[in-house]
Design a protein around this nucleic acid. Structure first.
Lengths: 347, 347
DNA sequence: TTGAAAGCGCTACCAT
DNA sequence: ATGGTAGCGCTTTCAA
């Protein structure tokens, strides 16, 4: 038994062939005689040979690894995206390097630098940045990248995410259809999903001739990380208003979870007193205090699309044209917004 | 502007020094004059130089990357473990390659093979294997590995996980203390956590002189993946029994979520009719139908310990002695098992 | 069909 | 303090 794992050199020497021949067999070149091929394959199996992909990467310039940077691995949305990514990448023999930025732009920058230094073939980022500057550095390195979930205006980049304006209007229209007339919004700041969903919210209200005083719109920072406590605090603010809102569109599910907690603690009922809609449709939405109506963003599909787009970029680096892929949101109706019984009672 | 990213060679040529000198500056060797060092650093900054870690890995034999294979990225327990891992690894400049086996032993094997081929410095696995065979292959490669969450009897390996027997008895004792007398169990199969927790369950019952007919113990496969539907189905079985159990220890939180759904659908109350305890203490446990009492396994700490152990293995490969690290479980008391005041009005 | 030579970008070792 | 030489394990190119 050798101390080191076997190398091509070893197999070549033992079989009296050259390293090149072994290499060709490994990569299924067809200019090798069947007998030679058989002997090499045989010996590879015996030795349990594994090509050193790090060495291959050095000469080919391709590591066959993709990087993913997300703000928070614990957030079910990103876990789902990662799952979709992982599925596609595995099928193509690509590895996935994952890193969490903890919503910290500086940390994110560092992690991206690491990935560039590792020469990952392509990097996928749900960015916590405020500016566009850090993407310029990726571009300098000539490493292709794909943004997901959060877009940057003024940056021509490949993007895969949700049609957030539509998500926002869809959620709001749903509340209106279910009898809500004074609809509050709990949002976020600084990233495109909360901003666009708020716009969708406004569009839906306007389309239905509804007016909402600005006090009913609460946008805090840190909507993703610790979204539940943000939602909790925001909802407590809303509960001080008179009259109370009869529906709340929360810009994501963690926020909605916090809001529900605040409502129940205050002794109100969901959906009878206040209806709730979230977004993201986390996989446990149906198991919450009150099963949560949510906008399904098809997060796993976002991951799959991002993976496919990323792999395309690797295959044809020439592509100067960058694509934007919006996955269509879809509302999943659950108890938290179901006022049908309430409407019957009240006439 | 160069087409390729800068290499040491470029910097060396431009500055009239040797590649070795540049390399030494990069790695903070102290046998370089301050002026030379300054010039090199300056130029590195200007060119935005990033050392090619793939090349470094080839010569040093260290990729500075750690692999993690889990059965399911969506399971909050593993996401939390990954978070703990990630934190420690980042601080040490290590990268994290993550892969999901989807509870499929064959897929897991393939992913591990990939990681070995990539020459990751160490591999951390929450294994879905039935046998010990695949770990032998890792050992052949001389790649150190750490098992987490799931142990294998008869395998001398490094392990970090929960004291599952204690977790099981702790949960069960808790139900007993809260007045339960006919306690059911929903478990899993084939992996050590459900098996050990069931043992803890039995120990606690025996210690308290309680007897539970075998029909009250339901162990299905697939306790992790789609744990909620498993729990749902198992609970429906239990609900057909007479008399009904007055408490259920579910071997993990997803299972408990499914069980709660079945109980509520059947028109029973939690905890008044049936108390529930889970394990894992997922981060949204407090936001479920009924806030869920759960055994906190300190999953993030498990990740941190696993990372530290893994890095130690990398640093001193000589260590023939393998360690087992059990993180102590801790019960988090919430409403789902709170029978102290069954008349209490929620709100 | 086969293989010798060159080199990917970097580090280790030892001489200067 | 500095650098020449010799690789790491593999692929590429081109000649035989």
């Amino acid at each position: 038994m050798a101390l080191m794992s076997a190398r091509m050199k070893d197999i070549a020497r033992e079989l009296g062939v050259s390293v090149v021949t072994v290499s060709k067999v490994l990569r299924n070149h067809d200019d090798i005689s069947p007998e030679t091929r058989a002997r090499v394959l045989q010996r590879m199996k015996e030795l349990n040979y594994r090509p050193n992909l790090a060495a291959r990467a050095l000469v080919t310039g391709r590591t066959h690894m993709v990087g993913l940077v997300v703000p928070d691995l614990l957030h079910a949305f990103f876990a789902q995206v990662a799952k979709g990514l992982s599925k596609v990448l595995r099928a193509q023999g690509y590895g996935l390097v994952i890193s969490s930025s903890e919503e910290d732009p500086e940390l994110e920058q560092q992690e991206i630098e690491q990935m560039l230094a590792r020469r990952l073939d392509v990097v996928i980022v749900a960015s916590a940045q405020w500016t566009v500057e850090s993407f310029r550095r990726i571009e300098d390195q000539k490493t292709p990248y794909v943004l997901i979930d959060r877009r940057f205006l003024g940056l021509t980049a490949n993007f895969v995410g949700t049609d957030d304006v539509l998500a926002g209007s869809m959620a709001t229209e749903h509340l209106i259809e279910n009898g809500c007339r004074l609809i509050a919004h709990i949002g976020g700041q600084n990233t495109s999903p909360p901003v666009d969903r708020l716009e969708g919210f406004r569009i839906a209200l306007a389309r239905n001739g509804l007016v909402v005083p600005s006090a009913y719109i609460v946008c805090k920072t840190h909507g993703d990380d610790a979204g539940d406590s943000t939602g909790y605090l925001a909802m407590k603010e809303l509960l001080r208003l008179k009259p109370l809102p009869d529906g709340v569109f929360c810009y994501n599910d963690p926020t909605a979870m916090g809001a529900m907690k605040a409502i129940i603690e205050a002794g109100y009922r969901i959906p009878e007193d206040i209806a709730i809609v979230g977004s993201g449709n986390v996989h446990y939405a149906n198991f919450l205090r009150v099963p949560l109506t949510s906008i399904d963003q098809n997060s796993e599909l976002i991951g799959e699309h991002a993976a496919n787009l990323a792999l395309n970029l690797v295959k044809c680096k020439t592509s100067t044209h960058s694509s934007t892929l919006l996955v269509e949101p879809r509302l999943v109706f659950r108890q938290s917004s179901d006022k049908r019984n309430v409407l019957q009672i009240s006439g």
